[in-house]
Every structure is written in structure tokens, then in C-alpha cells.
Amino acid sequence: MSTRNEARGRQQVDAEQLRGWLVARAARYVRMDAADVDCDLALSQYGMDSVSAVAIAVDLEDTFGVVLDVDTLWKYPTVNQVVEMLLSLRPGVRDQREELR
């Protein structure tokens, strides 16, 4: 029981850290304040275009050691959708947790 709770707690942290990282990265590419990014709104609304979508995907690849399609940010257009998708690849993402710190 406690192991499960612990595991759930860790997943929670992962999701929050991932979200924070992604918001900061996306905000940088679309030149806005990270605090203004709504995680349930498509990043295209903030000015993400084909070039910055690729840049974000490449940064995700580099940081989390995953291989992503160039269309990733169009298939998962909001921050929360990307986080969910990455967590579904969780073992790979978890291995890279230190990168988030």
C-alpha cells in the first residue's frame, strides 16, 4: 500500500516537473511569460509555428532520451497533452528525472 502511494507520489512530482519544464521551454520559443501559459490551451494560440514546434520536440528528445515524431506538437497540442503522452512512456522519462532538476 505504502509502496503504491509512494509510486503515485513520485508520478505526481514527475508530471509537475515535466509541466514546468515544458511551459518554460515553450514560453521561451514563443517569447512570452511562462506564468501566462494555460496548460490546456493549444500552444499554437501563443504563436507556436512549424519551426518552434520542431524546436520543442527536439528539446524534449534531448532532455528525455525519447524519439518523437516531428508532428508531436501538432498531435499533442497542449502542454498537458504532451505531459500525458510523455508519462505514458514513463520508464524512459523517469530515468531522466535528474535532468529536470
Binding site: Q45, M48, D49, W74, P77
Partner: peptide, 15 residues
């Protein structure tokens, strides 16, 4: 309106 912004960014790369 958001769908329009999204589509134009995705298909044409325009703001």
C-alpha cells in the same frame, strides 16, 4: 477562432 489560429499555424506556419 482558436481552431483557425491553430490550422493556419499548422498548415502554413503563419501567425
Amino acid at each position: 477562432a482558436q481552431d483557425v489560429v491553430h490550422l493556419v499555424a499548422r498548415e502554413f506556419g503563419a501567425q
